[in-house]
Protein backbone atom coordinates (compact mmCIF):
# COMPACT_ATOMS: atom_id res chain seq x y z
CA UNK A 1 0.00 0.00 0.00
CA UNK A 2 1.22 3.52 -0.75
CA UNK A 3 2.15 5.91 1.96
CA UNK A 4 -0.05 8.92 2.70
CA UNK A 5 1.86 11.88 4.07
CA UNK A 6 0.19 13.73 6.94
CA UNK A 7 1.81 16.98 8.05
CA UNK A 8 1.63 17.17 11.85
CA UNK A 9 0.14 20.42 13.17
CA UNK A 10 1.67 20.98 16.59
CA UNK A 11 2.60 23.62 19.12
CA UNK A 12 5.96 22.86 20.74
CA UNK A 13 5.52 19.15 20.10
CA UNK A 14 1.94 19.01 21.37
CA UNK A 15 -0.06 17.56 18.48
CA UNK A 16 -3.27 19.46 17.75
CA UNK A 17 -6.45 17.45 17.41
CA UNK A 18 -7.07 17.99 13.66
CA UNK A 19 -3.89 16.00 12.95
CA UNK A 20 -5.50 12.92 14.50
CA UNK A 21 -8.52 13.47 12.25
CA UNK A 22 -6.20 13.61 9.22
CA UNK A 23 -4.53 10.35 10.26
CA UNK A 24 -7.96 8.73 10.50
CA UNK A 25 -8.83 9.93 6.98
CA UNK A 26 -5.38 8.94 5.68
CA UNK A 27 -6.07 5.29 6.55
CA UNK A 28 -8.81 5.26 3.90
CA UNK A 29 -6.25 6.16 1.25
CA UNK A 30 -3.19 4.15 2.23
CA UNK A 31 -0.61 3.83 4.99
CA UNK A 32 -0.35 6.98 7.11
CA UNK A 33 3.15 8.44 7.40
CA UNK A 34 3.20 11.45 9.69
CA UNK A 35 5.68 14.26 9.07
CA UNK A 36 7.01 16.13 12.08
CA UNK A 37 8.77 19.41 11.38
CA UNK A 38 10.03 20.89 14.62
CA UNK A 39 12.76 20.77 17.26
CA UNK A 40 14.19 17.23 17.33
CA UNK A 41 13.89 17.10 21.13
CA UNK A 42 10.12 17.67 20.90
CA UNK A 43 9.56 14.85 18.43
CA UNK A 44 9.15 12.03 20.96
CA UNK A 45 5.86 13.30 22.37
CA UNK A 46 4.42 13.93 18.92
CA UNK A 47 5.46 10.45 17.78
CA UNK A 48 3.63 8.90 20.74
CA UNK A 49 0.40 10.67 19.75
CA UNK A 50 0.44 9.98 16.02
CA UNK A 51 1.34 6.34 16.66
CA UNK A 52 -1.87 6.02 18.66
CA UNK A 53 -3.84 7.24 15.66
CA UNK A 54 -2.29 4.82 13.22
CA UNK A 55 0.90 6.40 11.89
CA UNK A 56 3.04 3.58 10.53
CA UNK A 57 6.00 5.86 9.94
CA UNK A 58 7.01 9.24 11.28
CA UNK A 59 9.46 11.36 9.33
CA UNK A 60 11.21 13.65 11.77
CA UNK A 61 12.65 16.83 10.28
CA UNK A 62 14.69 18.97 12.65
CA UNK A 63 13.70 22.61 12.12
CA UNK A 64 16.73 24.22 13.80
CA UNK A 65 17.70 25.95 10.56
CA UNK A 66 14.28 26.91 9.30
CA UNK A 67 12.36 27.88 12.42
CA UNK A 68 10.65 31.22 11.98
CA UNK A 69 10.82 31.21 8.20
CA UNK A 70 7.11 30.57 7.71
CA UNK A 71 5.79 28.23 5.03
CA UNK A 72 8.35 28.18 2.22
CA UNK A 73 10.86 25.79 3.90
CA UNK A 74 8.07 23.45 5.00
CA UNK A 75 6.87 23.20 1.41
CA UNK A 76 10.44 22.28 0.37
CA UNK A 77 10.58 19.55 3.02
CA UNK A 78 7.30 18.08 1.83
CA UNK A 79 8.31 18.30 -1.84
CA UNK A 80 11.43 16.26 -1.04
CA UNK A 81 9.37 13.71 0.87
CA UNK A 82 6.92 13.46 -2.02
CA UNK A 83 9.87 12.82 -4.31
CA UNK A 84 11.20 10.12 -1.98
CA UNK A 85 7.96 8.32 -1.16
CA UNK A 86 5.63 8.88 -4.16
CA UNK A 87 2.69 9.04 -1.73
CA UNK A 88 -0.95 8.40 -2.60
CA UNK A 89 -1.76 11.84 -1.18
CA UNK A 90 -0.52 14.61 1.10
CA UNK A 91 -2.94 15.71 3.81
CA UNK A 92 -2.62 19.06 5.57
CA UNK A 93 -4.85 20.88 8.06
CA UNK A 94 -6.83 23.55 6.21
CA UNK A 95 -5.86 26.67 8.13
CA UNK A 96 -3.96 29.77 7.06
CA UNK A 97 -0.57 28.08 7.25
CA UNK A 98 -1.62 24.66 5.97
CA UNK A 99 -3.26 26.05 2.85
CA UNK A 100 -0.19 28.11 1.97
CA UNK A 101 2.13 25.14 2.43
CA UNK A 102 -0.18 23.16 0.16
CA UNK A 103 -0.19 25.99 -2.39
CA UNK A 104 3.59 26.05 -2.69
CA UNK A 105 3.83 22.27 -2.67
CA UNK A 106 1.30 22.07 -5.52
CA UNK A 107 3.41 24.39 -7.68
CA UNK A 108 6.66 22.58 -6.79
CA UNK A 109 5.33 19.11 -7.53
CA UNK A 110 2.91 20.05 -10.37
CA UNK A 111 0.04 18.60 -8.39
CA UNK A 112 -3.58 19.40 -7.87
CA UNK A 113 -4.59 21.14 -4.64
CA UNK A 114 -7.95 20.98 -2.91
CA UNK A 115 -8.59 23.31 0.02
CA UNK A 116 -11.23 23.32 2.76
CA UNK A 117 -12.22 19.68 2.24
CA UNK A 118 -14.74 18.38 4.77
CA UNK A 119 -14.55 14.77 3.62
CA UNK A 120 -12.34 12.48 1.52
CA UNK A 121 -13.35 9.05 0.24
CA UNK A 122 -11.09 6.02 -0.27
CA UNK A 123 -11.05 6.95 -3.97
CA UNK A 124 -9.75 10.41 -3.14
CA UNK A 125 -13.00 12.21 -3.91
CA UNK A 126 -13.25 15.28 -1.71
CA UNK A 127 -16.28 17.19 -0.51
CA UNK A 128 -16.24 20.96 -0.02
CA UNK A 129 -18.94 23.28 1.16
CA UNK A 130 -19.00 26.47 -0.95
CA UNK A 131 -20.91 29.72 -1.37
CA UNK A 132 -21.44 30.06 2.35
CA UNK A 133 -22.65 26.48 2.61
CA UNK A 134 -25.29 26.78 -0.12
CA UNK A 135 -23.54 24.24 -2.33
CA UNK A 136 -21.76 21.00 -1.70
CA UNK A 137 -19.10 20.20 -4.27
CA UNK A 138 -17.23 16.96 -4.87
CA UNK A 139 -13.89 17.09 -6.67
CA UNK A 140 -10.88 15.00 -7.38
CA UNK A 141 -7.26 15.75 -8.09
CA UNK A 142 -6.54 14.56 -11.61
CA UNK A 143 -2.81 15.25 -11.96
CA UNK A 144 0.24 14.77 -9.80
CA UNK A 145 0.01 13.90 -6.11
CA UNK A 146 -3.33 14.87 -4.55
CA UNK A 147 -2.66 17.61 -2.00
CA UNK A 148 -5.69 17.97 0.21
CA UNK A 149 -6.17 20.57 2.93
CA UNK A 150 -8.85 19.27 5.30
CA UNK A 151 -10.84 21.37 7.74
CA UNK A 152 -10.83 20.60 11.44
CA UNK A 153 -13.77 18.46 12.65
CA UNK A 154 -14.12 16.63 9.33
CA UNK A 155 -13.78 13.20 10.93
CA UNK A 156 -13.85 11.83 14.44
CA UNK A 157 -10.36 10.66 15.27
CA UNK A 158 -10.18 6.89 15.73
CA UNK A 159 -7.46 5.33 17.80
CA UNK A 160 -5.60 2.41 16.27
CA UNK A 161 -2.02 1.45 16.99
CA UNK A 162 0.47 2.14 14.21
CA UNK A 163 4.10 1.03 14.14
CA UNK A 164 5.25 4.64 14.40
CA UNK A 165 8.69 3.83 13.02
CA UNK A 166 10.79 6.96 13.26
CA UNK A 167 12.90 7.98 10.32
CA UNK A 168 15.05 11.08 10.55
CA UNK A 169 14.81 13.03 7.32
CA UNK A 170 17.47 15.56 6.40
CA UNK A 171 15.88 18.00 3.97
CA UNK A 172 17.90 20.45 1.90
CA UNK A 173 16.51 23.94 2.27
CA UNK A 174 17.32 26.63 -0.30
CA UNK A 175 18.37 30.11 0.77
CA UNK A 176 15.45 31.49 -1.22
CA UNK A 177 13.05 29.80 1.20
CA UNK A 178 14.70 31.53 4.15
CA UNK A 179 13.58 35.07 3.51
CA UNK A 180 10.43 36.37 5.17
CA UNK A 181 10.91 35.78 8.87
CA UNK A 182 8.98 35.98 12.12
CA UNK A 183 10.75 38.68 14.10
CA UNK A 184 8.45 38.61 17.13
CA UNK A 185 5.63 36.37 18.25
CA UNK A 186 3.22 36.53 21.09
CA UNK A 187 1.68 33.12 21.73
CA UNK A 188 -2.03 33.32 22.18
CA UNK A 189 -3.02 33.46 25.81
CA UNK A 190 -4.93 30.40 26.79
CA UNK A 191 -8.50 31.21 27.75
CA UNK A 192 -8.82 27.86 29.49
CA UNK A 193 -11.61 27.09 27.03
CA UNK A 194 -11.42 24.71 24.06
CA UNK A 195 -9.85 25.98 20.85
CA UNK A 196 -12.47 27.61 18.62
CA UNK A 197 -11.85 25.50 15.50
CA UNK A 198 -11.54 22.23 17.39
CA UNK A 199 -14.38 22.64 19.88
CA UNK A 200 -17.40 20.33 19.88
CA UNK A 201 -19.61 23.21 21.02
CA UNK A 202 -19.25 26.90 20.15
CA UNK A 203 -21.22 29.68 21.85
CA UNK A 204 -21.01 32.98 19.94
CA UNK A 205 -22.06 36.54 20.61
CA UNK A 206 -22.74 39.41 18.23
CA UNK A 207 -23.73 43.05 18.30
CA UNK A 208 -26.78 42.06 20.32
CA UNK A 209 -24.58 41.48 23.38
CA UNK A 210 -24.14 45.23 23.50
CA UNK A 211 -20.54 44.57 24.47
CA UNK A 212 -21.32 42.43 27.51
CA UNK A 213 -19.98 38.96 26.76
CA UNK A 214 -20.43 37.68 30.34
CA UNK A 215 -23.69 35.81 29.57
CA UNK A 216 -22.10 34.25 26.48
CA UNK A 217 -19.03 33.17 28.47
CA UNK A 218 -21.13 31.85 31.32
CA UNK A 219 -23.13 29.62 28.97
CA UNK A 220 -19.96 28.53 27.17
CA UNK A 221 -18.42 27.44 30.46
CA UNK A 222 -21.55 25.56 31.52
CA UNK A 223 -21.44 23.67 28.21
CA UNK A 224 -17.66 23.25 28.10
CA UNK A 225 -17.70 25.25 24.87
CA UNK A 226 -15.45 27.64 22.99
CA UNK A 227 -16.48 31.30 22.67
CA UNK A 228 -16.92 32.89 19.24
CA UNK A 229 -17.96 36.33 17.97
CA UNK A 230 -19.39 38.03 14.90
CA UNK A 231 -17.37 40.60 13.03
CA UNK A 232 -19.59 43.34 14.41
CA UNK A 233 -18.53 42.31 17.93
CA UNK A 234 -14.88 42.18 16.89
CA UNK A 235 -14.98 45.50 15.03
CA UNK A 236 -16.53 47.10 18.14
CA UNK A 237 -13.47 45.96 20.06
CA UNK A 238 -15.43 43.66 22.37
CA UNK A 239 -13.56 40.52 21.39
CA UNK A 240 -10.16 39.89 19.76
CA UNK A 241 -10.17 39.07 16.06
CA UNK A 242 -9.03 35.50 16.74
CA UNK A 243 -12.51 34.80 18.09
CA UNK A 244 -14.26 35.87 14.90
CA UNK A 245 -16.36 33.27 13.12
CA UNK A 246 -17.07 33.76 9.43
CA UNK A 247 -15.66 34.34 6.01
CA UNK A 248 -12.75 36.40 7.25
CA UNK A 249 -12.49 34.72 10.62
CA UNK A 250 -12.51 31.08 11.59
CA UNK A 251 -14.69 28.46 9.95
CA UNK A 252 -16.12 26.18 12.57
CA UNK A 253 -18.02 22.96 12.19
CA UNK A 254 -18.92 21.91 15.73
CA UNK A 255 -21.60 19.49 16.89
CA UNK A 256 -23.48 22.46 18.33
CA UNK A 257 -23.34 26.16 17.46
CA UNK A 258 -25.21 28.66 19.64
CA UNK A 259 -25.58 32.13 18.04
CA UNK A 260 -26.60 34.91 20.41
CA UNK A 261 -27.47 38.42 19.25
CA UNK A 262 -26.17 37.58 15.78
CA UNK A 263 -28.34 38.43 12.76
CA UNK A 264 -26.91 35.72 10.49
CA UNK A 265 -25.33 37.70 7.61
CA UNK A 266 -24.02 35.63 4.69
CA UNK A 267 -20.40 36.26 5.74
CA UNK A 268 -21.10 34.95 9.23
CA UNK A 269 -22.95 31.93 7.87
CA UNK A 270 -19.93 31.09 5.72
CA UNK A 271 -18.08 30.27 8.90
CA UNK A 272 -20.67 28.22 10.76
CA UNK A 273 -23.28 26.85 8.39
CA UNK A 274 -21.84 23.33 8.40
CA UNK A 275 -22.33 23.02 12.17
CA UNK A 276 -24.32 19.86 12.92
CA UNK A 277 -26.90 21.48 15.20
CA UNK A 278 -27.59 25.23 15.23
CA UNK A 279 -29.37 27.13 17.96
CA UNK A 280 -30.00 30.88 18.18
CA UNK A 281 -31.21 33.44 20.66
CA UNK A 282 -32.25 36.73 19.06
CA UNK A 283 -34.83 39.30 20.03
CA UNK A 284 -35.89 39.88 16.43
CA UNK A 285 -38.06 37.03 15.15
CA UNK A 286 -37.26 38.16 11.59
CA UNK A 287 -33.50 37.70 11.99
CA UNK A 288 -32.12 35.59 9.10
CA UNK A 289 -30.27 33.36 11.57
CA UNK A 290 -33.62 31.73 12.36
CA UNK A 291 -33.67 30.28 8.81
CA UNK A 292 -30.78 28.05 9.81
CA UNK A 293 -31.66 26.92 13.27
CA UNK A 294 -32.77 23.59 14.63
CA UNK A 295 -34.09 25.45 17.64
CA UNK A 296 -34.53 29.17 18.16
CA UNK A 297 -35.58 31.40 21.00
CA UNK A 298 -37.00 34.83 20.28
CA UNK A 299 -35.93 36.75 23.35
CA UNK A 300 -33.38 38.94 25.08
CA UNK A 301 -30.07 37.12 25.40
CA UNK A 302 -29.35 38.92 28.67
CA UNK A 303 -32.33 37.12 30.19
CA UNK A 304 -32.24 33.81 28.31
CA UNK A 305 -28.53 32.95 28.53
CA UNK A 306 -28.01 33.23 32.30
CA UNK A 307 -31.17 31.18 32.93
CA UNK A 308 -30.05 28.61 30.37
CA UNK A 309 -26.58 28.39 31.93
CA UNK A 310 -28.21 27.75 35.33
CA UNK A 311 -30.47 25.08 33.82
CA UNK A 312 -27.46 23.39 32.23
CA UNK A 313 -25.55 23.44 35.53
CA UNK A 314 -28.63 22.09 37.36
CA UNK A 315 -28.90 19.13 34.98
CA UNK A 316 -25.23 18.30 35.47
CA UNK A 317 -25.71 17.79 39.20
Amino acid sequence: MSEVLVLIDHVDGAVRKPTNELLTIARRLGEPSAVFIGPADQAAGAVETVKKYGAEKVYVVDDAEIKGYLVAPKAEVLAQLVEKTSPAAVLIVSGGEGKEIGARLAVKTSSGLITDAVDVTAEGVTTQSVFAGNYSVTSKVTKGTPIIAIKPNSASPEETAGAGTVEEFAATISDAAKTAQIVAAQPRQSTGRPDLTEAAIVVSGGRGTGGDFAPVEKLADALGAAVGASRAAVDSGWMPHTFQVGQTGKTVSPQLYVANGISGAIQHRAGMQTSKTIVAVNKDEEAPIFELVDFGVVGDLHAVLPALADAVEARKN
Binding site: V125, T138, K140, T142, F295, V297
Partner: peptide
Protein backbone atom coordinates in the same frame (compact mmCIF):
# COMPACT_ATOMS: atom_id res chain seq x y z
CA UNK B 1 -5.08 21.75 -18.04
CA UNK B 2 -6.58 21.90 -14.56
CA UNK B 3 -5.03 19.64 -11.93
CA UNK B 4 -8.33 18.88 -10.29
CA UNK B 5 -11.88 18.50 -11.53
CA UNK B 6 -15.25 19.12 -9.97
CA UNK B 7 -17.34 15.96 -10.19
CA UNK B 8 -20.58 17.30 -8.85
CA UNK B 9 -22.00 20.55 -7.47
CA UNK B 10 -25.25 20.15 -5.61
CA UNK B 11 -27.33 22.84 -4.00
CA UNK B 12 -27.60 21.99 -0.34
CA UNK B 13 -31.19 21.21 0.56
CA UNK B 14 -32.50 24.05 2.67
CA UNK B 15 -32.26 23.19 6.34
CA UNK B 16 -35.59 21.92 7.57
CA UNK B 17 -37.20 24.66 9.56
CA UNK B 18 -36.49 24.27 13.23
CA UNK B 19 -38.71 24.98 16.16
CA UNK B 20 -38.88 28.63 17.22
CA UNK B 21 -40.27 29.63 20.59
CA UNK B 22 -40.81 33.05 22.09
CA UNK B 23 -39.37 33.62 25.54
Amino acid sequence: AAYSAVEEATARPPRTAGEIVTD
